[in-house]
Simulated scan of single mutants.
Amino acid sequence: MNDSHPTTTIDVALGERRYPVWIGHNLLADRDRWRAMLRGRHALVISNTTVAPLYLQRVTQGLEGLEWSSFLLDDGESHKSFSNVERALQALADLGATRDACVIALGGGVVGDLAGFSAACWMRGIDFIQMPTTLLAMVDSSVGGKTGVNLPAGKNLVGAFHQPRAVVADIDTLASLPEREYSAGLAEVVKGAAIGDVPFFEWLEEHADALMAHDTALVIEAIARKVRYKAGVVSRDETEQGERALLNWGHTFGHALETAGHYTTLLHGEGVAVGMVLAAKMSERLGMSEAVDRERLQRLLQRLGLPTTVPAGMDPQHLLELMRLDKKNANGQLRLILWRGIGKAEIVGGVDETEVLAVLQAAMPA
Rank of each mutant, 00 (worst) to 15 (best):
A120S: 15
A120E: 00
A120I: 02
W122M: 00
M123E: 06
M123P: 00
R124C: 09
R124K: 10
G125P: 07
G125Y: 11
I126V: 15
F128D: 00
I129S: 02
Q130N: 11
M131E: 03
M131F: 12
P132T: 05
T134Y: 13
T134K: 09
L135P: 03
L135Y: 14
L136T: 08
L136H: 12
A137G: 07
V143S: 06
V143E: 05
G144W: 13
V149K: 08
N150M: 08
N150A: 04
L151V: 01
P152W: 01
A153Q: 15
A153V: 11
A153E: 14
G154H: 02
N156L: 09
V158R: 00
H162P: 02
R165D: 06
R165K: 15
V167I: 07
A169E: 06
A169I: 09
A169T: 05
T173M: 13
T173P: 10
T173Y: 13
L174C: 11
A175M: 13
S176R: 14
S176G: 11
S176A: 15
P178Q: 06
E179Y: 11
R180M: 04
Y182S: 03
G185L: 13
A187E: 09
V189E: 05
K191G: 00
G192Y: 15
A193D: 02
D197E: 06
P199N: 01
F200C: 07
F201G: 03
E202C: 06
E202Y: 05
W203I: 10
W203Y: 09
H207P: 02
H207A: 00
A208K: 07
L211H: 13
M212E: 10
M212S: 14
A213G: 13
